[in-house]
Write a protein that binds this DNA or RNA. Structure first.
Length: 866
RNA sequence: GCCGGAGUGGCGAAACUGGCAGACGCGCGGGACUCAAAAUCCCGUUCUCCGCAAGGGGAGUGAGGGUUCAAUUCCCUCCUCCGGCACCA
């Protein structure tokens, strides 16, 4: 077989990008519909906030997802790979205040630009399913779902103290407060008291916690964060009956169970005999009443006010000195029957538990410090075992470990952990307490005093009260014209024509709710909408969601480990309980991709360290960028951006190009001899082995392992093997190494061409998820029609992938002393004999006794000598 | 403080089920090609010791211990870094 040399085609990745992106778009290559005959694969990357420009940190995530989507398509899966925009949010509105550009205008322009960037990267999205949450056809269903939650008491309105960001001029959920600052702008968070809408995520707290055990394909890190966030703790609520003002002695007869009482939450009811005072949070609901009934109401109020005014975050993180004051009132410890003073303390949290605690200074460090500071009594009710007994006067710190119960009447002698159960039972029997479970997780406050969000669909009527907007009047659309002043009240409240609306119940003039929803509402269910993005009768068709969901592979930044991912798990359960979805968890497998750093820190406009993918595309093409980002480290790792690494990937692509180009004319337009019936020589067989073994490695590393960096390594090794083969075993030689004078017909064995064709075909197919443009072009050059869309993932033959000869290391006492080259099917016995006969081994066994010979089949021989 | 995750060459990393530590790439060094350079191709590159050399010895995966014929991998103690929670009663 002969072929003629010609000049190597130049590799122009940029023109390949354009050519194949246009073709994919024209043919709708990545659009899909439900097809029950094929297994589905829902591959999703967290959608994007349209900030204007995507940097390589953002697009890394999309590239990871794209590799998985493309690879799954080739393996016969019906792949849903959609994209969309988390398009509501503060920056657009802040820009409007500053620059006077309407948020809708800037958002839509940003979306257009970023969409272009993603398309230039060749990400294989089903663009006809694109959604933007700021459009009424999306947020209508936020409103619809809100009304369903309202009906089920999963949405409710409550006056409450909330986190307030003075810079963003809005409320923040607890999850949005990071280290005491606003999650978006970092400004120190203050507090305000407002009527707020809440979603009752706590209804699912236990289920959300329990189900983390079944999320076996989520990173442990994320599950830990969610468990911490939910923060379950088991304990008991106990009532301390309140004595009337002026009474400081407990009555001799027990008080009735329904007497006015301060209820406390404790995890250490075993120490209750040591509870010598009770502490109330400054926010406690009874503070007002106690002040009124006190001798000097004004003084009490002033003290409370002082505590409430203390910096909210400092109070929550313990940076404020522990302070308190005596209210003048007493309560009764229900176990000792003694009166204990009632204090207010700044370190007691109003929003956790009951807002009141029993103070056990002997066994709680905070209470101990408080007692010493204010001269309150300390009683020891738990003694350590195997140590000298504690005395209250001599203690320098609280004893918080479990121990033997003392001074607690009938419970004396019990071990603390056993006493907890027994005392809780006793409290229950007397009707003065109950075992409870307390969660740190709080209901999700969704009210935002901003314009650029989903209007909350309720109307307040002077006669009917709060009235939900009927479904057939949805969506409640945002008014088009608004003046953006940045003032603290809701911008919608200023649009009188919009606010005034007839009451849906009685028809009289009423006023709309002027708060909008937290944008995390939008992102909590968008993955369902992708399944049926244009449905104007329902949020989605349950049958379509049943086919596509749950999401099989979800990737995004770890910064969403709590916020977005716990809200989505919550919404999934709401939809489930509405009968619209059948699964319990929305995301089967989660991958948290690491950030891309530049000069040691995350890319951001303000730091001026942003790497724009378009710059990289202009220099190296999309494939080199994609390949580099996949190769440099595992997807979960943070990576430091370097241009040098990118050049290495560009070189690798050119190296593939050259070897494929060198042989493609030999294959094109003629029948490459089939391998069957040919007799490849040793070198050719070895190349086949490399080909099949590489397919095996790559297939496994892609899925299920998602070790994308080692996939690229394996491809590089295969290319190195191809070059070595060309150099040593073909007449043509190394690609790009031909001297001009040598140009001319060169003969190759048919076997050589056949194994090369097999190798190059497989190489291009395996490359295609990473470098799809180059791969498409090479696939065409290799003589295939129909594009990669028509191609299947290469299969490997395990027999060919296995070498007929293997190299087995031989150790003596665990130290490597030699290597044996033996047939792959060598017996253990033969291997043992060969090992003992090996010269390098005998040097180390001479004069010693061979105690054992361990043969790990096909892997290693270890000779143990004494 | 509690709960997770991680620590391997000059750098990014690999080692899948306990079996040759450092694959692959970057960088660096050398060579080939070239009038020359770039590009390309080939070789070398954990540290250290012995040797002119071929070659050989020793150490080595944060530290120390343990289990094992054999440990980056399993167990214990500790150190450091990263992340989460944290006056949560």
């Amino acid at each position: 077989m002969r072929y003629n040399f010609r000049i190597v085609r130049d590799y122009h990745p940029q023109s390949l990008d354009r050519k194949w992106q246009a073709r994919w778009q024209d043919t709708g290559a990545f659009e899909v519909t439900e097809d029950p005959s094929r297994p589905k694969f829902y591959c999703l990357e967290m959608f994007a906030y349209p900030s204007g420009h995507a940097h390589v940190g953002h697009v890394r995530n999309y590239m990871i997802g794209d590799v998985m989507a493309r690879q799954k398509r080739m393996r016969g899966f019906n792949v849903l790979h959609p994209f969309g925009w988390d398009a509501f949010g503060l920056p657009a509105e802040n820009a409007a205040i500053k620059q006077g550009i309407h948020p809708e205008q800037s958002t839509l322009a940003n979306i257009a630009h970023m969409k272009g960037q993603l398309q230039r990267l060749g990400i294989s999205y089903a663009w006809n399913r694109e959604i933007a949450t700021c459009l009424p056809d999306y947020y209508k269903w936020n409103q619809w779902l809100f009304l369903r939650m309202l009906e089920r008491d999963l949405a409710y309105r409550k006056r409450s103290t909330v986190n307030w960001c003075p810079s963003c001029q809005t409320v923040l959920a607890n999850e949005q407060v990071v280290d005491g600052g606003c999650w978006r702008c970092g400004t120190a968070v203050g507090s305000r008291t407002l009527d707020q809408w809440f979603l009752r995520i706590t209804h699912y707290a236990q289920e959300l916690l329990d189900a983390t055990d079944r999320l076996t394909e989520w990173p442990e890190k994320v599950l830990t964060m969610q468990r911490n966030w939910i923060g379950r703790s088991e304990g008991a609520r106990v009532k301390f009956a309140l004595l009337r003002a002026g009474v400081s002695e407990a009555p001799s007869a027990p008080l009735p169970a329904d007497a006015p009482a301060v209820e406390v939450f404790t995890t250490r009811i075993d120490t209750i005999f040591g509870a010598t005072f009770v502490l109330l949070a400054p926010e406690h609901e009874w503070i007002e009443r106690i002040a009124d009934e006190s001798a000097d109401p004004a003084a009490v109020r002033a003290q409370v006010q002082k505590f409430r005014a203390q910096d909210r975050t400092a109070r929550m993180t313990g940076e404020v000195e522990k302070e308190g004051f005596f209210t003048g009132r007493y309560a009764v410890n229900p176990f000792t029957g003694r009166a204990v003073p009632l204090w207010v303390a700044n370190f007691v949290l109003g929003e956790y538990g009951t807002g009141a605690v029993m103070a056990v200074p002997g066994h709680d460090q905070r209470d101990f410090e408080f007692a010493r500071k204010y001269g309150l009594p300390i009683t020891v009710v738990v003694q350590p075992e195997g140590q000298p007994p504690l005395s209250a006067d001599a203690m320098t710190e609280a004893f918080v470990e479990p121990g033997r119960i003392v001074g607690s009447g009938e419970f004396d002698g019990l071990w603390s952990t056993d006493a907890i159960g027994r005392m809780a039972e006793a409290a229950e029997a007397r009707g003065i307490g109950a075992r409870t479970v307390q969660f740190r997780l709080k209901d999700w406050g969704i009210s935002r005093q901003r314009y650029w969000g989903t209007p909350i669909p309720v109307i307040y009527c002077g006669h009917c009260g709060m009235v939900p907007v009927p479904d057939d009047q949805l969506p409640v659309e945002l008014p088009a014209m608004v003046e953006f002043t940045g003032r603290g009240d809701s911008p919608l409240a200023q649009v009188e024509a919009w606010v005034t609306a007839p009451c849906p119940a009685c028809g009289r003039p009423a006023r709309r709710e002027t708060d909008t929803m937290d944008t995390f509402v939008d992102s909590s269910w968008y993955f369902y909408r992708y399944c049926d993005p244009r449905n104007d009768r329902q949020a989605f068709d349950p049958a379509k969601v049943r086919y596509w969901c749950p999401v099989d592979f979800y990737s995004g930044g770890v910064e969403h480990a709590i916020l977005h991912l716990i809200y989505s798990r919550f919404f999934c359960r709401v939809f489930r309980d509405l009968g619209m979805v059948e699964h319990d968890e929305p995301f089967t497998r989660l991958l948290t991709q690491g950030m891309v750093l530049k000069d040691g820190s995350a890319m951001s406009k303000s730091k001026g360290n942003v790497v724009d993918p378009d710059d990289m595309l202009a220099r190296y093409g999309a494939d080199a960028l994609r390949l580099y980002v996949m190769f440099v480290a595992p997807p979960e790792n943070e990576i430091e951006w370097t241009d040098a690494g990118l050049e290495g990937s560009a070189r690798f692509l050119a190296r593939i190009w050259r070897v494929a180009d060198q042989w493609c004319d030999a294959f094109a337009g003629r029948a490459v001899p089939a391998l069957a019936g040919l007799a490849p020589n040793e070198a050719e067989q070895e190349l086949r082995r490399v080909t099949h073994d590489t397919i095996r490695r790559v297939t496994h590393d892609l899925d299920p392992r998602v070790h994308l960096n080692t996939v690229v390594s394996a491809l590089m090794e295969m290319v190195n093997a191809l070059y070595a083969f060309c150099e040593a075993h073909t007449n043509t030689g190394i690609p790009g190494r031909r001297a001009k004078g040598e140009a001319g017909p060169v003969e190759e064995r048919p076997e050589t061409l056949a194994v090369l064709k097999e190798a190059l075909d497989a190489l291009v197919l395996m490359l295609s998820p990473f470098a799809p443009h180059t791969a498409e072009e090479l696939w065409e050059m290799l003589g295939h029609e129909g594009g990669l869309a028509a191609a299947a993932w290469p299969a490997y033959d395990p027999v060919i992938a296995r070498s007929s000869e293997i190299v087995v290391p031989v150790q003596v006492n665990g130290k490597l002393r030699g290597r044996l080259t033996v047939p792959a099917d060598v017996t253990e016995e033969a291997l043992k004999e060969l090992a003992l006969a090996e010269a390098a081994v005998r040097v180390h066994t001479a004069g010693k006794t061979v105690a054992r010979v361990i043969v790990a089949k096909g892997k290693l021989v270890n000779v143990v000598v004494k």
